[in-house]
Amino acid sequence: AISQALVEIMGGRIEVTSTVGVGSTFAFTIAWPLAARPERRAATGVDWLSSGRPERRRRDDAATHESAGRERPGSGPADPSTLPGRSSPIPPTPGLRILLAEDNVINQKVAQLMLARGGHRVDTVSDGLEAVQAVGAVAYDVVLMDVHMPVMDGLEAARRIRGLGDSIRQPVIIALTASATTEARQACLEAGMDLYLTKPIRPAELAETLATVTGAGTVLGDCPDAAPIASRPDDAVIDYEVLGYLDDVGAETKGWLLRSFAGQGESRLRAISAGIEALDHEHVVELAHRLRGSSATVGASALAAVCAEIEVAATRQEPITAGQVARLGTAMDRTLSALEPFMHPVREPEPEPESA
């Protein structure tokens, strides 16, 4: 279902042929024109961590293409995407080769779909060490780097990538983090990152940031104001603006993502409770952080807030109260109840064949 959604988003089609006892072959076709990537420039409206860094990161594309032996295909989206409640489309961006370093499966899928909609080629890794290894092997234009990952975090991965110097084609590194503090921004800058996006990722901000990398960016403030979203009884539980960002991937794919979130969320809730009982603070920090990230991505703001509270307490090795555990369970129950209508979209009935 995910592969089909990715292909259809880019205006293509996917086919399958099967042979009993042998296996299945999947093939897809997508019309992508070749596109030259313009020079990057700094632009207003996008959070460059250092005004001088874009110039220092400029690369010699001609030399890179010569060593590769061929031009890299790129494209814009088949149809321009439009934000919920906005009348202006996201500016088209030439296709980029992007590495997504993110350990949360839900966040991975959502980011992949957003990037595919923009016509970008995306590879995915799940920790910082894999990111360093991937950058050493492939000339990426951009690395979207989650700051908090297992094995090696995003900050250390960025430092190691910058430490490779001119032995690789240095990419633009964009930090992905739920923290918007000055300290977090400074840590990303010192690690060698270029840009900064806060989670949950919003399509307009992602598109604008990537457009700035290629020099095609516009100012976010120039977009018309979003139309007001009608209030609902469970507005304190769900941020419907964030949830609405998943509409672009289609109802079926959105339902699949939400069902995956529900299944993973319930299992992580049990694991968090077990970790709290065992006083395993390190494990609780990891689990609460992951649940917080995926909750924010699907708009489960109340659940994300309780996860953040528990994550902070566990990080400080403070006792986690029975009240906090109860609030976590209640937030999960209310979240799943609010998301239920979106998990199982109703299919439109097939048209009946006309009678002869």
Rank of each mutant, 00 (worst) to 15 (best):
A313T: 06
A271I: 00
G217A: 15
V306Q: 10
S260K: 11
V312A: 00
H289N: 00
Q317R: 08
G215V: 14
A262R: 10
E241W: 06
P224A: 11
H289Q: 00
G221I: 09
E309W: 03
A322K: 12
E266P: 02
A300F: 01
L303T: 05
I310H: 09
A216Y: 13
F261R: 02
T315C: 02
A296M: 10
P224S: 06
L291T: 08
A314K: 07
V237T: 11
E252F: 10
P319V: 02
A313Q: 10
E309N: 06
E266R: 06
S273H: 13
T297F: 05
C223N: 07
V249M: 11
P319E: 03
D280V: 09
T321M: 02
R270A: 13
D239M: 04
C223P: 04
A251K: 09
R268P: 00
A302H: 14
H281S: 09
T212G: 15
A274R: 14
I272A: 00
R268C: 04
A305P: 04
G244V: 05
T218Y: 09
H283Q: 15
Y240A: 03
A304L: 13
I229R: 01
I229T: 07
A211D: 07
T214Y: 15
E311I: 04
Y240C: 06
L246D: 01
A305T: 12
G299M: 03
I238H: 03
G217E: 14
H283E: 08
V213S: 02
E309S: 04
A278E: 15
A302G: 07
R290L: 07
A314D: 04
G263T: 12
P224I: 03
G299I: 08
Y245F: 10
V242W: 09
D235S: 07
L246I: 06
E286R: 11
C223S: 14
P228N: 06
L246V: 03
S273R: 15
G217L: 13
Y245S: 03
A278G: 10
C223A: 13
A236I: 11
E311W: 00
R316M: 08
D280Y: 11
H289D: 01
R316L: 14
V298K: 12
E252M: 10
D235M: 03
F261E: 11
A274H: 14
H289Y: 09
P319W: 04
S294I: 14
A236C: 03
S294L: 10
P319T: 02
R290P: 02
L257K: 01
V285Y: 07
I238N: 08
D225S: 13
T315Y: 05
R268F: 01
V298T: 05
A314H: 00
S294F: 02
A288K: 02
C307L: 01
I229S: 04
G255S: 05
D239P: 01
L279K: 13
R268Q: 12
G299P: 14
G263N: 14
I320G: 02
G244A: 10
